[in-house]
């Protein structure tokens, strides 16, 4: 019996009797991070990183007593199976799940990036026999510039817009990318305005004790003149909506790994695209996989066929696995709840 099975509800550990990121309700769910394709409502009990707890409560409406928060590296035993969480570097609270039983070690990556963004915790390579990796950006065309370079590009763009009297609206996922952008924007603006969806996440994190630069929520009664030349962070649901018109004149900059390819920038009708991603790029994936020393790699959501084939050719046994993760290609579009909020703003 393998330590972890791939079932139609998610990744299942029969010995421990728990699932990892199940996409259907189960009794016990370990959650790698709070993005909607990994964290779903309806399960009986949840285990996740301490900083993911308030996000699950907020986003899924999970009762506090149903969620157990742990620190990175803190072991939890379930029917003899040793489970521990380790930083995945994807977003705040995001974790890899290490599962050990009778000397066999599996690691499930969830979503991860190998560059330290300063707020999500630095990705920790963990030795294991079997590694389950994501592959959202599993093609060599995805080769990210270092964060300081992209931050510089964004800052130049913001300043340039302000010189033309335009507001800068940055489209970013409200959980993860939005928080990551704050330290980029802080040096070039006095105030950072945010959409309600971003505001809610921000509050949940600040209340849980995460130190983040202050933001200001865009309110319906605010006069339009206030936003002249200002900086705004909003989720993609705000793009092209009536909500965004209040910033006129403005330029839209989309922050997403998909912006690496010109066609995607044009398709989004964005004025600018910044390939700032919370997922590992091709080199990041290969480096992380190699560092685990795994004998067997299962490749999930993304370019799984490509990455699996490449690994096999390089002598690393790999197979692709179908999951329900990353169904929205952005690897983190707003949840339904946020969409509704955006529509009402």
């Amino acid at each position: 019996m393998p330590l972890i099975e791939f079932t139609d509800k998610g990744l299942y550990c029969p010995q421990g009797g728990f699932y990892i990121d199940p996409w259907r309700p189960v009794d016990r769910a370990i959650i790698t991070h709070a993005h909607s394709d990994h964290a779903r409502a309806g399960s009986g009990a949840y285990l996740c990183h301490r900083l993911t707890v308030p996000l699950l409560e907020w986003r899924l409406g999970v009762a506090a007593e149903a969620v157990q928060g742990v620190e990175w590296g803190e072991p939890v035993f379930m029917n003899g199976v040793r489970v521990s969480l380790h930083p995945a570097g994807h977003i705040i609270g995001s974790s890899q799940v290490r599962v050990e039983y009778q000397g066999e070690v599996w690691v499930v990556s969830g979503d991860y990036k190998t560059e330290d963004d300063g707020i999500s915790g630095a990705f920790e390579p963990i030795k294991c026999q079997v590694f389950v990796t994501e592959s959202t950006f599993g093609l060599p065309i995805y080769d990210w510039k270092p964060q300081p370079v992209i931050f510089g590009n964004i800052q130049d763009w913001v300043v340039g817009n302000r010189e033309q009297g335009k507001a800068s609206v940055l489209i970013a996922y409200s959980l993860g990318k939005a928080q990551r952008l704050l330290s980029c924007l802080e040096p070039v603006t006095e105030k950072i305005y945010v959409h309600g969806a971003v505001w809610n996440i921000h509050q949940a994190l600040v209340n849980a004790g995460v130190a983040l630069p202050p933001v200001e929520r865009v309110m319906p009664e605010m006069p339009r003149e206030l936003f002249k030349g200002q900086v705004v962070i909003a989720p993609s649901s705000a793009e092209g909506s009536p909500w965004i018109r209040r910033f006129q004149p403005f330029a839209v900059g989309v922050c997403s790994g998909w912006m690496q390819v010109r066609g995607n920038v044009r398709r989004r009708n964005a004025d600018a695209g910044f390939a700032l991603s919370d997922h590992a790029d091709w080199k990041g994936l290969l480096g992380a996989i190699e560092a685990t020393g795994a004998e067997k790699v299962f490749v999930t959501h993304g370019f799984q066929a490509t990455l699996a084939r490449y690994l096999n050719e390089r002598g690393i046994a790999a197979a692709e696995v179908k999951t329900a993760y990353g169904e929205d290609e952005e690897g983190g579009e707003p949840t339904d709840k946020e969409e509704k909020e955006a529509a009402h703003e």
Binding site: L139, P140, I141, V261, R262, G263, F303, T306
Partner: peptide, 21 residues
């Protein structure tokens, strides 16, 4: 070669594919 092809089909433009790789 096959991986180059995969990239090309995803990017949809040879000049850009090469620039990215």
């Amino acid at each position: 070669a096959w991986l180059f092809e995969e990239c090309y089909h995803t990017v949809g433009d040879l000049a850009e594919t090469i620039a990215l790789l």
